[in-house]
Structure formats: C-alpha cells, structure tokens
C-alpha cells in the first residue's frame, strides 16, 4: 500500500485492501467461467455450429455444470508423480495470475482505482509472470511422464524467450510515460493512446502475450496432436481446471495490461472507467479467441526463431527508436513524468 492511504491507521488500510481484493477476485472467479463459455460460443460461431446450448437458456449455465463436474470428479494423482510439486504446480499458476490483478488500474481514483497502486507495478507484473513459468515447468517435471516433460520443456523455452520481447516492448512504453506505475502510465496517455506512439511495441507485446499465455498459434506446450495434453497430461479434475483457470486469467490479465499500457486504460468518454476497461479487455479477448480459431500451430524451431531472430531484435529496435524520440521531443508525451 502506498501513497494516498499511508497516513491512515493500518487496520483501515487492510480493510480497504480486503474489500477491493474480495470484489475483484469474486468478480474474476465468477467471470472466468463465463469467459470460457464466451470463448466456446465465439469459436462455435466462427465454425458454423451452435456451441454449448444444453445447460440453461443458450447454454448460459454451462460454466456451473462444468465447475460442478470438475469439483465432483475423482481427483486422481498417478502413483509415479512427485506429489508435492504435482499439487503445487496448478496452484502456482492460479495464484500468480490472481495476484497480478492487484496492479491493474480500473479507474483514476488513487485509492479505489486499483487494489494496489504500486509504483513498481510493471516490475511486479513481470516478476509474477516469470513465476508463472515455474508452474508449467514443475507440472511437466513432476508428472514424470514423457509427454508432460516434453510439454514442460517446450513451455519453459517458449515462455522465457517471449518474456524478453514482452518486457522490452513494455519498457519502451515505460520510457515514454517515465513511470512504472500503471495508473500513471494511463494518465500519461491523456492526449493520445500509446498504441499510436508505439504501434510496433503493441504488436510485439501482443504476439508475446499470446505466446506467454500459450494459446494458438503458440500452444505448443499443450499441442494435443503431438503431446496429447502436454504438461497437464496427467492432471485431472479440479487441478486440471486450475490450469485452465490460470490460462484464462492470464489471457484477461494480458488483455488488461495491453488495454492499460497501449489503449488508454480506463479512459474514454461518457462511460465510467471500469466499463471502458472491461470493454477494451473484451475486444482484446475476442481477438485472442479469433486468432485461436483461425491459425495453425507453429513448429517448435520456428517458434524459437520468431522469438529470438525477429521479436527480440524488433523490440530492441523499438526501444532505440523510442529512446531517440523521447530525447528529441521531450514534450511528446505531455503528461509523462520526467
């Protein structure tokens, strides 16, 4: 907790934090189920079929049915796994994804705008997304199964490589705004959104974000046609569902970060901030789903080539261009912090 509340008593700070966290987490956990439904419905629409439509009107209760099924299903832990890591892995991905939400600003209010209006927000986000890699690695490793190991290895290489370009793309935006605080980055976009100043950065971030969240065309770690289910081959029931929860939360989180850093965050006319945020996230989420329905999957060596030979050099180039721009036109971003 920083800034605005630092003079208040500790219990008050904690109370506010708990209220904000409960609201956001409750909303997130509730919404994720329906996001899965939304994804299935959108893909069904793109593929010319009805999609889930049995549970409730238009299949609206499908998430409830799914969750009930996953909760009541027998939880099987294969005898050959490393039990502690096997159980820890799905928890890690969910926890890191959830904690990252603390830093996303939903409005301009310094107290109520974000759970934690952190000055090092960008760093925390990068640190947590690096931690998320552990979940996949450990899941693959502890499963003690060949497909899982292959999936885990693929995931490790992929996520580490793409995290570099992701952070560098983000860094360029940070340079423009002059701050690591997400709320201040949004404020820096008052005259125009960073997507206009950072089109290349946005592209790099978007591609890396898809790779970070392991979705088509970068879904190699769980390529079902090659690796059955990749790193989560041995998982079942709720532990399996936690991976999905983590993945979807990751997608929303990355959409949220993109909306915050490049699309002006909560800014927008007439409607209140959180609504704009949700709209922007929804659009980005739709693009994620659209890409998933359209593209085939990359091959492992191509994926690495794209990461190291294209995205990272491009990100460096973008960084240099941004640095030159910032130095030549100091008032390019009027609200930037210098």
């Amino acid at each position: 907790m920083t800034g605005a509340l630092s003079n208040e008593p500790l219990w008050y700070q904690l109370l506010i934090a708990v209220i904000k966290a409960s609201v956001l987490m409750g909303a997130l956990l509730g919404v994720t189920g329906w996001l899965v439904l939304a994804e299935r419905k959108i893909i069904a629409w793109l593929q010319g079929r009805p999609g889930p439509n049995r549970a409730g009107p238009m299949g609206l209760f499908q998430p409830v049915a799914d969750v009930l099924k996953l909760l009541t299903k027998e939880e099987s832990i294969p005898p050959f796994v490393n039990k502690i890591l096997f159980i820890a892995a799905p928890a890690i991905i969910t926890i890191t994804a959830m904690v990252s939400y603390a830093i996303i600003p939903w409005g301009p209010n310094p107290v109520w705008g974000a759970i934690s209006n952190l000055n090092l927000g960008v760093l925390l986000f990068l640190a947590l997304s690096s931690l998320g890699v552990y979940s996949i690695v450990l899941a693959g490793w502890s499963s003690n199964s060949k497909y899982a190991v292959l999936g885990g290895l693929r995931a490790t290489a992929q996520m580490i490589s793409y995290e570099l370009s992701l952070s560098m793309a983000l860094l360029a935006a940070v340079m423009m705004a002059g701050t690591l605080n997400f709320q201040l980055i949004v404020e820096a976009q008052r005259p125009f959104w960073f997507i206009l100043l950072q089109p290349l950065g946005f592209f790099i971030f978007f591609v890396s974000a898809i790779a970070e969240s392991r979705r088509t065309p970068f879904d190699l770690p769980e390529a079902e046609n090659e690796l059955v289910a990749g790193f989560h081959t041995e998982y079942s029931a709720m532990k399996f569902a936690l991976f999905f929860l983590g993945e979807y939360m990751g997608v929303i989180l990355l959409s949220g970060i993109m909306a915050t850093v490049y699309l002006g965050g909560y800014q927008g006319p007439i409607l209140p901030g959180p609504v704009w945020m949700i709209l922007k996230i929804a659009v980005l989420f739709f693009v994620f789903v659209w890409i998933r329905a359209t593209y085939p999957r990359f091959r492992y060596d191509h994926l690495m080539q794209i990461g190291w030979k294209w995205l990272i050099p491009l990100a460096v180039l973008n960084l240099i261009i941004t640095a030159v721009l910032c130095l030549t036109f100091p008032n390019l971003v009027p609200n930037a912090i210098h």
Binding site: T216, D219, N225, Y295, R297
Partner: peptide, 8 residues
C-alpha cells in the same frame, strides 16, 4: 489442418 493445430 487439425493436426497442424488449426481447429476450424
């Protein structure tokens, strides 16, 4: 298509 990862 499906085997190279395109689901549609």
């Amino acid at each position: 298509g499906h085997d190279v990862g395109a689901m549609t």
